[in-house]
Design a protein around this nucleic acid. Structure first.
Lengths: 208, 208
DNA sequence: TTCTTGTCACCTAGGTGTTAATAT
DNA sequence: ATATTAACACCTAGGTGACAAGAA
């Protein structure tokens, strides 16, 4: 079945002799084939870090870890051809340091170091799929994506690189609008962080 | 396989001791199950309209029609459960009166009347699926969504209703910001046109 | 002292009708 | 005359770091 959203407003326009495009809720049932998931580091205990004299050092050990949440890409489940059609952006993934977070954000501890991981999971149609759970996914790790979670930048050079490379921080650039101090120009002609809701090194608390 | 987007920038950040979230292109192959499609009126010849003394009248007949394009919802193909998860918005659908349009927009003729149609198409896995093409879709029509394509509003009351009901036109409202002249308040607490790229009665030419 | 939170001005990105200029 | 285009101010929506105030 299909329902028309904002039916009353549609009719109000229609009475005057016009119209536009609608929101619909369409229905059917079926199985799921593929899912893309992104997770933070495994829920092991991890050391605490501190920034001193321009360097990050281990400042403690084995702090209790935060809840091990994962982020499901909003397009999942979808089949392989769908994922291939365009770049898969995780710009809806958000971080928080609020242990009681209620928005499904990934919970991290400030001043701790993390390694993002990507899992591509095969949604097994078999009834006893749990038995094969070990072979039904493939993981990817890019070590250059490691990061330390903070509530405010510790390293001023990170701040400067962020300002230089993120279009949303253009208001803090000092030089000519057509030249950047650090990153070469071509990097910014591609959408970089413009679609990211994350502040790379900065945790945001819940708004509640 | 998986590739990391913006690898150079990642490494530049990483050298300073930090990181963030990435864009990825993930690969796999599979079949397609369901698709949602939206189309304008059928490519028959249609009459021309004119607005005179507050009414639309037929002002000609059987103009040659425009190319009969259809708009595939960007989430398609997807299975039923996926479509059910949230309202299916066609806010990426755009109209144009440019017969040479190269952006895949729906081509319409100004001063002509149209009936939007929604088709839910079953992607048949059988090899001889063309034989069953007649039974592999279901169409939906909401007559209250009919509209006349124009390049500028003809009916001033349409303009006023648009201003009153579309949050993006809030700058043209005259009364208190907390009261609207025509539509009752509750209508606007829901996202209405805020996600639509269409000017309900106005065609946009290509930017080329 | 060190870390965290909330507010702010400044951006990107793009959806509105208005208006003046142009085309038909 | 009428229809179309392009530039504009004004919005929504939300991603930035700066900064001041607060918390641990």
């Amino acid at each position: 079945t299909v329902q028309l959203e904002m039916k009353a407003l549609w009719e109000e326009f229609n009475q005057l002799g016009t119209e536009m495009i609608s929101w619909l809720r369409v229905g059917a049932t079926d199985e799921v084939p593929w899912a893309a998931v992104r997770a933070p580091s495994p829920p092991h205990s991890v050391p605490r870090y501190a920034f001193h004299s321009s360097a990050w050092l281990v400042a403690g050990k084995a702090d209790p870890t935060t809840p091990g949440r994962v982020h499901f890409h909003p397009d999942s489940p979808a089949k392989g051809a769908q994922w291939m059609r365009q770049i898969v952006s995780f710009d809806k993934l958000k971080l928080t340091n609020n242990l009681l977070d209620d928005n499904g954000h990934i919970i991290l501890s400030s001043m701790h170091r993390y390694q993002p991981r990507l899992h591509v999971v095969f949604v097994d149609p078999r009834k006893d799929s749990e038995r094969y759970a070990q072979e039904n996914f493939k993981s990817f790790i890019f070590t250059e994506t490691q990061f330390t979670a903070v509530t405010a930048y510790q390293n001023h050079r990170i701040t400067q690189l962020k300002i230089a490379s993120n279009p949303f921080a253009k208001g803090f650039r000092e030089s000519d609008p057509d030249s950047w101090p650090i990153s070469p120009r071509p990097l910014l002609s591609v959408p970089t962080w413009s679609r990211s809701s994350l502040r790379p090194c900065v945790l945001k608390g819940s708004t509640e």
